[in-house]
């Protein structure tokens, strides 16, 4: 089963201008990538914990990662926000505010760390594409940069192995990719919701 078909079976795909419905993710060296991508910042080194598209006002809710060609030496780490922010004062979490490192369409918009969306909420973090906009965000960024937690490790080893991440409630990271594992291929699709009737737009 193709990843798009699989995604349609478990939820409703996002339609995002400029982003293919299914993206092929392969490790790349820094010089072979672009600075707006994590591989352009970290290459085959470890990716830090982050929210996908954290610099967007409303990042995609769910991330589907599906193995096409696995490698047991490479893993994805997932870390729920309630663990990541344990011990932080509530005032930091309620007031922390970020801004994107670069303007989007010529405009900069301010981004609360914790954001109510309908009857749920999202939390965001990205050490590369977000900048703290107040003291609380700077304190939060310090905490997250020095965080000891490594989260839960998930290995997408065999074709078809799939990981679905709630991007609003869980951060994720990728381990370093050793030289022999650079043919690893994972496909990614963003989902708006899970458990629907499979309609996509």
């Amino acid at each position: 089963m193709q990843t798009a078909e699989f995604a349609d079976c478990i939820g409703r795909r996002e339609s995002i201008a400029g982003i293919p419905p299914v993206q092929a993710l392969m490790p790349r060296r820094i010089e072979a990538s672009t600075p707006n991508l994590y591989s352009g910042q970290f290459g085959c080194g470890a990716f830090p914990f982050h929210t996908d598209l954290a610099h967007w006002f409303l990042p995609p809710r769910f991330i589907l990662l599906r193995c096409r060609r696995g490698d047991a030496r490479v893993f994805t780490s997932v870390l729920p926000w309630d663990r990541a922010i344990r011990g932080l004062p509530t005032s930091v979490m309620s007031r922390a505010r970020f801004r994107p490192r670069r303007a989007l369409n010529g405009r900069v918009h301010l981004l609360p760390f914790a954001q109510v969306v309908g009857d749920t909420a999202l939390w965001r973090w990205d050490s590369v594409f977000l900048e703290p906009d107040n003291h609380e965000a700077a304190a939060l960024a310090d905490h997250l940069m020095q965080m000891g937690s490594t989260g839960e490790r998930v290995v997408l080893r065999d074709p078809g192995d799939t990981l679905v991440i709630d991007n609003w409630r869980v951060m994720h990271a990728r381990s370093a990719v050793p030289t022999g594992a650079r043919r690893r291929l994972v496909e990614r699709s963003y989902l708006r919701e899970l458990g629907n009737d499979g309609q996509s737009d």
Binding site: F57, L58, P59, R61, G118, D119, T120, R192, L194, G195
Partner: peptide, 18 residues
């Protein structure tokens, strides 16, 4: 598992309450 659907958005509406 059911989750309320909210479409991604790169930027907020400049007149939005948020």
């Amino acid at each position: 598992m059911m989750a309320k659907a909210t479409k991604v958005s790169a930027a907020p509406h400049p007149w939005s309450s948020d």
